[in-house]
């Protein structure tokens, strides 16, 4: 039955194709909700509201606590996290029935594992009063999970379908660079999270920004020069470059807001908004890098 379905997908039969479109839409929605979840998490950190609910998994011993002050941010974060958890589980189940690729079905299950691990780290953050390494791990696993969700959204596009081969051996310079950019941006998000959660100094993040900027622009220029004709590569490269430019401005803005409001008795709205957008655009930068790498490796497989 499944083989027949796979055959119909490959041959472009209309009914499975429609189902595949809906699977892709669902995967995209799940990835988008993950981005919203990252924004909600950033709001919690920026508002210093991570411990406004002292217990976990319940909130003040119940499902819905009094929604006052910082509790609003923390509880909304938990609510969206629960929604993303359900969406991820639904996607994994859907993939088991609808996707013929074994590695894709496994990726769906991996996503569920990641969301469970992420929830556990969130709980540990609350119960152990935000140890820097736990909070940093929580922030970074969120980015890794977002990458997995974005990847699944890419893999479920009808266009990707029958051309799912990915080959790492014999990678060209641009492909190697794209992989390096993914690792570098992820590393930069790690040190950024380390700084935000008071585990690392600011200099790590500033140095990382210089390195990432160099790698990203090198990769974008190469991709546009040598790989622009490959499907989707040019838009992905431009998106990556645009995200990075935006990040540089927002990074400067975050630092400026932090210094300007250093003596403020509480997190000030401008600081909160700028840092939250900085985190969200950081996630989009990583997602753009991942998509570019996937597209480049996909086109390599087509040759």
């Amino acid at each position: 039955m499944q083989t027949a379905q796979l055959h119909m997908t490959m041959t472009g039969a209309s009914e499975p194709r429609t189902a595949r479109v809906w699977l892709h839409r669902y995967a995209t929605l799940s990835a988008f909700c993950t981005l919203v979840l990252i924004c909600a998490g950033a709001l919690v950190t920026s508002n210093d509201a991570g411990l406004s609910i002292p217990d976990w998994p319940l909130s003040y011993g119940r499902l819905v606590p009094p929604l006052i002050g910082g509790i609003r941010y923390e509880w909304t974060h938990r609510l969206i996290a629960g929604t993303v958890g359900c969406l991820t589980l639904g996607l994994a189940v859907w993939l088991q029935f609808a996707d013929p690729r074994r590695w894709m079905r496994r990726l769906g299950i991996t996503a569920v594992g990641l969301v469970v691990a992420q929830a556990t780290l969130g709980g540990l953050t609350v119960l152990f009063f935000q140890p820097p390494w736990v909070s940093t791990a929580h922030a970074c696993l969120a980015q890794a999970f977002f990458c997995v969700m974005v990847s699944m959204a890419v893999f479920t596009t009808p266009e990707w379908g029958s051309r799912a081969g990915i080959r790492f051996s014999g990678a060209r310079t641009t492909e190697k660079l794209a992989m390096t950019v993914v690792a570098a941006v992820f590393l930069q998000l790690l040190v950024g999270a380390g700084y935000r959660h008071k585990g690392l100094g600011m200099n790590w993040h500033l140095a990382g920004a210089v390195i990432v900027t160099g790698f990203v622009f090198w990769t974008v220029v190469r991709a546009l020069r040598y790989n622009a004709t490959e499907s989707g590569v040019a838009p992905a490269a431009i998106a990556l470059g645009a995200c990075l430019l935006g990040q540089l401005f927002l990074g400067g803005g975050s630092l400026g807001a932090k210094l300007y409001y250093a003596d403020a008795p509480q997190p000030m709205p401008i600081f909160v908004y700028v840092t939250t957008v900085h985190v969200a655009l950081g996630a989009l930068t990583l997602a753009s890098a991942v998509v570019l790498a996937l597209l480049l490796f996909r086109s390599e497989a087509q040759r």
Binding site: P132, W133, T136, A137, C140, L141, A144, C147, M179, V182, A183, F186, L187, L190, V191, G194, H197, G199, L200
Partner: peptide, 13 residues
């Protein structure tokens, strides 16, 4: 690859 970087940074922090 990212997981290895992730582990290294967590260690560093």
């Amino acid at each position: 690859l990212p997981l290895v970087f992730f582990a290294l940074i967590v260690l560093a922090v």
